[in-house]
Amino acid sequence: MSKTLLPFKSEQELIQACQKQDRRAQQIVYQINAGKMMAVCKRYLGVGPDAEDALMEGFMKVFSKIDNFQGQGSFEGWIRKIMVNESLMKIRKTANRYDQDIDETYDVAHPEDALMHLGVEEIQNLILELPPGYRTIFNLYAIEGYSHVEIGDMLQISEGTSKSQLSRARQILQSKLKELQA
């Protein structure tokens, strides 16, 4: 997949063309970002048609809302945010997975050094093995960098629930790694 901006000279020019609904510009934006955004969607929704749907609907939203992009922050970051929101909406539609209001945090053991040396595929697979609720919060906090307050707002859960689910996610990851090493 070609990832050149041509015939556009800069990202700014590309975005302006997209704002005019230029099909060539839209295709270039898609070609540049689709692979990364597919990885984002899969991290939340797993392998399957849901991730592909979220990717497609996410890009449709990118092209329809591109006038809202004011150039503050990176364009890729803006697209990623849309993809994350689209994935969360997909999860919400399937089931309410954030109804557990758990304030209790779990004792998570000191992380193994092996976690630092995992490859991308292994990390991706480990995350995908988490139950959907834990996986979502781990992704939002650990990978996307949202705070617990922001996660609480996004998922309509309390800050405590977000924290406890993150602890639980870490605990599961630790045990999964031990299973792998055993």
Binding site: K36, A39, M116, V120, I123, I143, G145
Partner: peptide, 11 residues
């Protein structure tokens, strides 16, 4: 560490 690795990951 994971964030940096996954940031450039593509499917």
């Amino acid at each position: 560490n994971w964030r940096e690795k996954l940031d450039s990951h593509e499917e």
